[in-house]
Structures are given as C-alpha cells and as structure tokens.
Amino acid sequence: MQFQEYFSLFIEQIKATSYLEWIAVAFGVTEVMLAKRNNILLYPAGIIGILLSLYLKLKVRLYAESLLSMYYLVMSIYGWIIWSKRKAKNEALPVSWTSKQELQIAFAIAILGYFILYFALINFTNSDVPILDAFVSSTAWAGMWLLARRKIENWIFLNVSNIVAIPLMWHKGYVMFALLTLFLFIVAIFGYFDWKKIYKRQLTVSS
C-alpha cells in the first residue's frame, strides 16, 4: 500500500471517529499533561476520560483494557485521596525513586497480572487479541500503582504498555486512541526527566 493510500485510510478513520472518542481523548491529554506537572487535577480529568474510554473499549471486546480502565478508576480515586490528604495538611507528596521492594511489587503486578488476564481472556471471553490485551493492561497496572505513589519509574512501566497499545488501538479501529497513546508515549519520556528534576529540587530544598 502506497503512502497516499495509507493517508486516505487515516483520514477516513479520523472522519469516522465518534464525538465520544474525541471527548475521551481530550480528557486523556489533559490528564497526562497535569501528571507531567505533578498537578492533583490530573485525577478528576482522568476519571472522566476513563469512564468514557471504558464504554468504548467494551464495545470492541477489549476486555482486559476495560479491566485496566476500571483499575485506572480505582487507582485515580486512591491517588486523589492520598494527594488531598497531603494537601489538607499542607504537605507536598514527594517524588521519589522506587525502592527494591516496591520494584519487586511492580514486577509482580505486571507478571502475575499478565497470566491472570491472559487465562481469563482465552477461557471466559471472545477476545481476538488476548496476548496484547493482557500485556498492555498488566504493565499499565504496575505503572499506575507507581504513579499513585509518586515513583519516577512509573513512566517506564507506562511506556512499555504504551508502545504495545498503539498498534492494538489501531487494529481495533480507534485511530484517535492510537494517536493519544502515541502522544502519551512521548509525554511520558519528558515526564520521566521532569520528575527527575523535581526529585533533585526536593533534595536541594531538604539539604
């Protein structure tokens, strides 16, 4: 297929994008930009986007991705509560590197989550992409857990998920979600380095 044909297909998919998908993508972009700035408003923006994307993913049988959205919802509420308590006490939630124990937990979430999701998908659903769906969701689960705890490595786990999610969303016909995921991948790279700078500033202030 020539470039012109690819471009025409892309334009057709853009035109076919529903208003609901556009809105979900807009809130997704807002969430990640606020996360990059370490801003608590990332959570309400994220919750709206999560609920919209959950509905859309269920429509195309992305069951593990739907579970991931539910997990995002729970972790967003969890993270919002933690941040709110810190803010009420006039305390900033510090950014930090992941400890050895936390890293082990994150890998456990990713690995065990993958096998549990894969088993569930092949045995209890009509999913046609169980391997990719399970992988994207399980690695993102680990990343969201680290994000709620303000760990710098959350960006790495989330980007491992993002790089696989891009072709998965495209395959399912969600071109805007694929572009959003590509955007999230790029922002996560900058987010990683921004959080490293925040961590260094914290050390300077505390010393």
Rank of each mutant, 00 (worst) to 15 (best):
F3K: 11
Q4C: 03
F7V: 09
F10C: 07
I11R: 04
Q13N: 13
I14N: 04
I14W: 11
S18Y: 00
Y19F: 03
L20Y: 03
L20H: 01
L20C: 00
E21G: 03
E21Y: 05
W22F: 11
I23R: 00
A26Q: 06
V29T: 11
T30R: 02
M33E: 01
L34Y: 01
R37Q: 13
N39L: 10
L42K: 15
A45K: 05
G49L: 03
I50Q: 00
L51Y: 08
S53D: 05
L54N: 01
L54A: 14
Y55I: 14
L56A: 05
K57F: 12
L58K: 00
L58R: 00
V60T: 13
R61V: 07
Y63F: 14
L68R: 04
S69A: 15
M70A: 15
Y71I: 11
Y71G: 01
L73N: 04
M75H: 00
I77C: 11
W80P: 02
I81K: 09
W83Q: 10
K87V: 07
K89A: 15
E91R: 08
S96V: 08
K100L: 08
L103F: 13
Q104E: 09
Q104G: 15
I105N: 06
A106Q: 03
F107H: 09
A110C: 07
I111G: 04
L112C: 10
L112G: 15
Y114Q: 08
I116L: 13
I116Y: 01
I116F: 08
L117N: 06
Y118I: 04
F119M: 06
A120Q: 08
A120E: 02
I122T: 14
D128Q: 13
P130R: 00
P130N: 04
L132G: 10
V136K: 02
T139Q: 05
A140M: 07
A140D: 14
W141A: 10
A142T: 01
A142N: 04
G143H: 10
A148L: 13
I152E: 13
N154A: 05
N154T: 12
N154R: 02
I156W: 11
F157G: 06
N159V: 06
S161P: 07
I163S: 10
A165K: 07
W170T: 06
Y174H: 13
A178V: 03
A178T: 05
T181F: 03
F183Y: 14
F183Q: 08
L184I: 12
I186E: 09
A188D: 09
A188F: 03
G191S: 09
Y192Q: 03
Y192G: 02
W195C: 07
W195D: 07
I198M: 13
Y199G: 04
K200L: 15
K200R: 09
R201Q: 14
T204V: 11
S206A: 14
